[in-house]
Design a protein around this nucleic acid. Structure first.
Lengths: 141, 141
DNA sequence: TAAAAATTAATGAAAAGTGAACCATTCTAG
DNA sequence: CTAGAATGGTTCACTTTTCATTAATTTTTA
């Protein structure tokens, strides 16, 4: 097998493996990885509303069902959905306080998973890895 | 954001992005990425039968799902499923000639996608990338 | 400015994925 | 040898994703 294929397969398997592990960690909190992902995106905006589109564009998986993921988060009262006043086609999604609180707990749980990997690579190696992948995708400056 | 998180997110996003792209390429051939993946694994064994377990171990799929993926491939007559003679709990899965032929066509289609990435990294860089990811997962020798 | 085109999100039906329970077979310990 | 545990795979009920379509609003253009 070519070095190219080896590398590609390694990236694919590892990427999926990590989200898989995250799913497993989250299971006990009754939240899926995509739901968690949306929460993280919302939280990253510090209260500023985000549209469905913007969330979509930042998601790891191409899943076209952001609407339904948000439905689930609404059920759990982790987010709010309001019509965007400046453009009524859009929806303003925001994380609730409860969402923020829960996210904190989830992050805590996950930090244990990450800490085990974090030390496998040095800082330089981590930078190298990021660079190599970006270069692979053709995103080099 | 820490270098660790940057690297991790890059791996996750790229891994999912690649399988997404592959899915899109395969759509016109009416085959899913996991189905293609199974075909590839079977083909790699050059006619030697492979059990569900072995397939599963090389994929990021639950075993109950591998059964169903193989069901689909059986419908398309791309694989054969026989009871394993040495252990009747196991199943011997093999790729059919038609499967091999179709795989060749799929690979051809995908080679266009890959060729655009293949040249972004040198051989040494590809090896480096593979090594770094393995190390990240803690799979270093 | 009215009609056509584009954008944004939601929905419904079909497909795929998940976890638990299940069945058959093989292994193991007494 | 046999009862109980373990293994390998499938099935079932349920959830999530996907794809195509629809609805509402905004933008473009003629």
């Amino acid at each position: 097998m070519s070095n190219y294929l080896k590398a590609i397969l390694e990236v694919i398997k590892t990427g999926h493996w990590i989200t898989d592990q995250v799913s497993i960690e989250l299971k006990e909190f009754d939240i899926t990885e995509p739901q968690f992902n949306v929460l993280r995106i919302l939280n990253g905006r510090n209260g500023k509303p985000v549209t469905v589109q913007e969330i979509q564009s930042q998601m790891v998986q191409r899943s076209s069902n952001v609407t339904r993921i948000i439905d689930k988060l609404l059920d759990k009262q982790f987010v709010e959905r309001k019509e965007c006043p400046s453009n009524r086609r859009k929806m303003d999604i925001t994380i609730t306080q409860s969402g923020v609180d829960h996210l904190k707990i989830l992050d805590q749980k996950l930090s244990k998973f990450h800490s085990s990997m974090k030390n496998n690579l040095s800082n330089t190696e981590l930078e190298q890895l990021t660079e190599l992948i970006k270069k692979l995708k053709g995103e080099t400056k």
